[in-house]
């Protein structure tokens, strides 16, 4: 992926987030923004995930696009998405646990692990179903590792 296309995609992601309907008026913009970011991640992992599960036929081009989007999101600077006081003990409308702010280095490491796995996916997503499937599993592992530690169940 070229730097130009990365920038373009980040801009695209940013506009999509801004265009998301407000989930609840009183939820801070930062919380809505990060939730929107995760929704975009879910949407894109769904493209490759449905291929991995055999629900839809493998499509190299679509797989590559979805993987590139995940890489693009992993490059978004996260500092504005996680202001202090936006945990689930302080406000409604979020499942982000206070432990996030007590373990920031670990949270960042988990986010970086997602980025590395997304990069790994982008390297193979267009090369065939089997390598893509393995790489999707690795990305999924990084989502789960962070939700395990830092996201409250429903």
């Amino acid at each position: 992926m070229t730097a130009r296309s990365t920038l373009l995609k980040i801009a695209l992601v940013a506009t999509t987030i801004a265009a998301l309907p407000a989930l609840a008026q009183d939820v801070p913009a930062a919380v809505q923004a990060r939730q929107g970011q995760f929704q975009i991640m879910a949407l894109n992992i769904g493209v490759v995930g449905n291929m991995a599960r055999g629900n839809v036929d493998y499509d190299a081009e679509a797989a590559q696009a979805a993987a590139d989007n995940l890489v693009a999101i992993s490059m978004l600077d996260q500092q504005f998405h996680w202001p202090e006081g936006t945990d689930n003990m302080a406000i409604d409308g979020t499942r982000a646990m206070p432990a996030i702010w007590e373990n920031l280095p670990d949270v960042i490491a988990k986010w970086d692990a997602f980025g590395a796995a997304a990069q790994g996916l982008a390297e193979v997503a267009g090369t065939g179903l089997e390598p893509m499937r393995a790489a999707v599993g690795a990305v999924g592992g990084t989502c789960g590792a962070c939700h395990d530690a830092y996201r409250q169940p429903m």
Binding site: I45, G46, N50, G144
Partner: peptide, 21 residues
């Protein structure tokens, strides 16, 4: 069955909490 294997819900949210283990 797929969720119990890859950890994704039908909407491709990823499982959290003790369910991950």
């Amino acid at each position: 069955a797929a969720y119990l294997n890859d950890g994704f819900t039908p909407d491709f949210d990823s499982a959290g909490g003790h369910m991950v283990s």
